[in-house]
Write a protein that binds this DNA or RNA. Structure first.
Length: 477
RNA sequence: GCCCCCUUCGUCUAAUGGUUAGGACGCCAGGUUUUCAACCUGGAAACAGGGGUUCAAUUCCCCUAGGGGGUACCA
């Protein structure tokens, strides 16, 4: 018998849902699902100066897009400030905290001095034992935690193993700012306790915090949650993820044309593995996921692998579903408005019919859209360099000879069209490629496209013959 | 500076006190082919360095180097 697992994802709304946060959310979600537990969402907005409404929305949207849901309503940490203050008072009354009257300037000077003397830059504990009556008049103090000075604090981390911190290295942190607002360190402890969090799965940038939080839990006489500190994700060059490379929000990956399922699959394999399994369904992820299989070293973000996975998921997704993804995506693209107009109602039908050939070749939805451009192009087509090369004198001559044969095709089906073109090639002693390539260029304006007989069919008799005519000088139709 | 964590092919990773150190992406070659993809076959590619422990270390221990995180009245 074991208690129900309750995890939480606790982003601070100072920016978008970045890739590291997305993976943390995914791990929390998977673990909760794997254990039949719950994942709660807590918005850590206690830094009022940096938290924004827009960031909250971006994070919630990002999670929804990724297909990660949470149990109950999100908890806004700021709304619990009263409770946090109450606990700070309780700590103060119990002698586990004290009032600190040091000014920011004094603290700054203290740090500089410590640095100059080669000591730890933490708070020196000036007000720890100093009498209350020494307090400067008219000043509201901050409340500091009276951290233990002797001994050590041990974290039994499910990922990192046993991590030991000497208490002398952990200084007296602020619990309540002088304006009475609670700090992150206090709020996290109180909220994790009150929300009944059993497992804290988060980035290993919080490892030191786990030690500090453990001390607070102990002072309060509360049981600590089980910790699992996951290594961070680095940029492709191994450096810390920054806005300049890789630290993009979920919506950026969406805009680049990645599928949520592909991103989930990619992310779950960053730092976690299940034998040789690479491509796995969400159900498989849930049934296989466990904390013990999370590695301890940081991973680099590799777009090439994400693209490969995305291509796989693109091919595996039903055509109609891809259409839905595209319809949702287009309005958010830079040229989305004009593109939507260009496609029109009739274009979506053509797109769906051409989808089997299109999705086979694309790595992202953006590529898919790009390769579908010929469907919506209007005559006469603009030819790219590759197409121009195919449509040299010889190519045009071939098309001119082929045109009558195509005009004579009774039923405009891929099968009939293929029979016609192959027959033409054979009869005139040409290799099929010598016919198919100029044809492709004339029909799509490019040198690459889905199978040429499918292209002919999707375009329809009139449009296809018109495009060929344009290239052999019979332009108009 | 101090504290903590990490180190297997270019990248994500598997495995093991004795293996030809496995898979995936990427790359190269070949096949297939109406193009491009996809697909198939093959190939190059790794245990950071140095000490120990041991009959035997990639695996256990120590040191060095390199990388990362933390060190706020941010979260």
């Amino acid at each position: 018998m074991s208690e129900t697992v309750i995890t939480r994802f606790a982003p601070s709304p100072t920016g978008y849902l970045h890739i590291g946060g997305a993976r943390t959310a995914l791990f929390n979600w998977l673990y909760a699902k794997a254990k039949g537990g719950k994942m709660l969402l807590r918005i850590e907005d206690t830094d009022q100066a940096r938290s924004t409404e827009g960031a909250i929305l971006a994070i919630l949207d990002g999670l929804r897009w990724l297909g990660i849901d949470w149990d109950g309503e999100p908890v806004y940490q700021l709304s619990r400030a009263e409770r946090h203050r109450e606990i700070a008072e309780q700590l103060l009354a119990a002698g586990h905290a004290y009032r600190c009257y040091a000014t920011p300037e004094e603290l700054q000077a203290m740090r500089e001095r410590a640095r100059a003397e080669g000591r730890a830059p933490g708070y020196d504990g000036t007000w720890r034992d100093r009498d209350h009556s020494d307090a400067p008049a008219g000043m509201t103090p901050a409340i500091r935690f009276k951290a233990p000075r002797e001994g050590e604090t041990v974290i039994e981390d499910r990922v990192q193993g046993r991590v030991v911190f000497a208490n002398k290295d952990l200084d007296d942190l602020i619990l309540l700012r002088s304006d009475g607002s609670p700090t992150y360190m206090l709020s996290v402890v109180v909220d994790d306790h009150d929300m009944g969090i059993t497992h804290v799965i988060r980035g290993d940038d919080h490892l030191t915090n786990a030690a500090r939080q453990t001390q607070i839990f102990k002072a309060l006489g509360w049981e600590t949650p089980i910790y699992a500190h996951v290594p961070l994700i680095h940029g492709p060059d191994g450096a810390k993820l920054s806005k300049r490379h890789g630290a993009l929000g979920a919506e950026a990956y969406r805009a680049m044309g990645y599928l949520p399922a592909a991103l989930r699959n990619y992310l779950v394999r960053l730092g976690w593995s299940h034998g040789d399994a690479e491509i796995m369904s969400t159900e498989e992820m849930i049934s296989w996921f466990d904390l013990d299989a999370i590695g301890r070293s940081a991973a680099r973000f590799d777009f090439a692998k994400l693209e490969n996975l995305n291509g796989h998921y693109l091919r595996a997704t039903p055509d109609a579903e891809l259409i839905e993804h595209l319809k949702a995506l287009i309005p958010d693209l830079p040229e989305g408005g004009s593109l939507a107009a260009q496609i029109g109602a009739d274009g979506w039908q053509k797109l769906e019919r051409a989808m089997p050939g299109l999705k086979e070749r694309a790595k992202t939805l953006i590529e898919l859209l790009d390769s579908a451009a010929f469907l919506f192009a209007t005559r006469p087509l603009t030819l790219d360099d590759g197409a121009l090369k195919q449509l040299d004198a010889q190519g045009r001559e071939t098309l001119a000879a082929l045109l009558p044969a195509l005009q004579g095709v009774e039923s405009w089906t891929p099968q009939a069209l293929e029979a016609c073109v192959r027959g033409f090639a054979e009869a005139t002693g040409r290799k099929l490629g010598k016919v198919a390539q100029p044809l492709r260029a004339a029909l799509t304006g490019r040198a690459t496209s889905p199978g040429i007989f499918d292209v002919l069919e999707v375009l329809g008799r009139d449009e296809a013959l018109g495009r060929i005519g344009d290239q052999v000088g019979l332009g108009h139709a």
